[in-house]
Design a protein around this nucleic acid. Structure first.
Lengths: 190, 190
DNA sequence: TTTATTCGGTTCCATAGGGAACAAAAAACA
DNA sequence: TGTTTTTTGTTCCCTATGGAACCGAATAAA
């Protein structure tokens, strides 16, 4: 285990996970070192795991619905949050607004969402799912949940809870993290 | 909290994390529901956190080194794993091989890696960092580690250890997960 | 009121990037 | 030996993507 990794764990019984390496992963030595000898162990595993969710799920969405990831992000956002403005979707997803604007147009073309201009504020457009859009989401929702279930089934219920709590803490703290590095530029405007 | 989420946690004291929501996150209601009311709570948080690492870090890499993510992936892989073939880098990173081939050409152009054709097997090309390449990696390494440290500093040492162990379990199990959904196509060839 | 600024959203454009076809070398097979 | 198959890596080409400029509406300032 790398020094930086040991330090990142604050000396807390670091290295205990070495023997757990599965054979099919261990035999790829470069993957092995990137997973277990990486000073950025956290972010690499994060990306690695995210990849193993996103690739199958968005591949499936593409096959089944003919939608790209930003397209589906719009639908999923409206599905979870109800009628929302595009800016809401932007803020909650991290995608750039032009990308989501295009995506919204596309799912609108396909009759999956409807738009309603706010009478009070002519700029604001409220987006909401149509029946067809809701149906599209529900067509893939079960598989998404199932994929996540499969991913988590290697954990005990206690571990799942622990994971949920720890990720919660991280997400909650994320507001404090810098959005850009170097040059010490503050988050506040001038 | 959503039913599916409760189920995903296997009824284990689900919902306890609700009150932990930070004010600056809570005020964005759509983000709120996507974080706390999402049946795919795990994958969403995964992506959310990965984003908060990748955006600053690869933005910094771009500014400082003028390299894109795949470019840097090549350098980082060789830095961690020593001389490797392109296929090794592909397998350990999840990027498509043409993308990494292009990236390798680019960093080779810039004198950051060198290539050596295997005498025994004319197809295999071993890639390795030049001094300049190593220098480039080390120029940003500290900031990457620092960003990850900042992300993890909201956790107690025990939580960090727990997180490391849980992610280890997940990564170790990832070989068993399906690479594609629907149509029940097996991973084995015919 | 007039002017400047912010806000919500769209369009333009250059390019990153990934699927698929390809080439060459090695290995498997006949 | 000659022939197919697999492996390694590159090239072609099309499209998704996101930065920047833009537009109209609302709000703040003058």
């Amino acid at each position: 285990m790398d020094d930086a990794m040991r330090q990142a764990l604050f000396e807390g019984r670091a290295g205990r996970d070495e023997p757990l390496v599965a054979p099919d992963i261990a035999d790829d030595s470069l993957l092995h070192v990137k997973l277990w000898g990486n000073p950025c162990w956290f972010s690499f595993r994060l990306n690695y795991l995210a990849l193993h969710f996103n690739n199958p799920v968005y591949g499936f969405v593409q096959d089944r619905l003919g939608l790209l990831r930003p397209d589906f992000v719009v639908l999923w956002s409206l599905y979870l949050g109800g009628p929302s403005t595009l800016t809401d979707v932007v803020r909650s997803s991290g995608f750039p607004k032009n990308t989501l604007s295009r995506a919204a147009s596309k799912v609108h073309q396909r009759g999956m969402i409807d738009r309603e201009v706010d009478a009070a504020d002519q700029r604001r457009v409220t987006l909401f799912l149509t029946d067809r859009g809701r149906q599209a989401v529900e067509e893939v929702k079960a598989e998404m949940i199932e994929q996540e279930r499969r991913m988590l089934e290697c954990l005990s219920p206690a571990e799942r809870l622990s994971l949920s709590e720890i990720l919660t803490k991280l997400v909650t703290a994320s507001g404090q993290w810098p959005q850009s590095l170097g040059d010490g530029q503050a988050d506040e405007g001038p």
